[in-house]
Amino acid sequence: MKGMTLIVKTITDFVVGFIIVFGAYIVLYGHLTPGGGFAGGVIIACAFILAMLAHGKDVAFSKLPEMVAHIIDSGGALMFLLIGWFGVTVGFFFMNTFGRGEPFRLLSSGMILPLNIAIAFKVSSSLFLVFSALAIFRRRSFRAMIEDELA
């Protein structure tokens, strides 16, 4: 997959950082304003997808290698589960054990902020992987697959 023209590349370089910062803002303020882990994660994934569409797959994979994306993907799911199990130490599963703080501040919702961050990691890296799988994988003939199996 090759890149696009110089205009598209320049504007993409200018815009991608702002998109990631906006996605991080939506994730971090998900419990106070509209948004949350899923919407912010999709926006962060869209930044990497834009980089992949404009520059080609090599540049996008040099920013976020495939193995790192797999690790972040699984690590987000494990982080969600671990935060859930943290409540077992006091009461029940997913009990809100963290400090609640002052209302309408950033640290005011206990465990919802870490859960939003975990969902954002999971959603952004897995959507990036889905898109890169759609964009990169080539169709192989059935005969070649069988010959690989036999070899």
């Binding site: 509209p34 919407a39 999709v42 926006i43 997808i49 898109f131």
Partner: peptide
Amino acid sequence: APDVAMAEASIGAALVTAIFVIA
């Protein structure tokens, strides 16, 4: 419903369009 609006704009307008363009 600004929450639904944000999800719709990011998924319906951005992600699905990119996947269709690749297809």
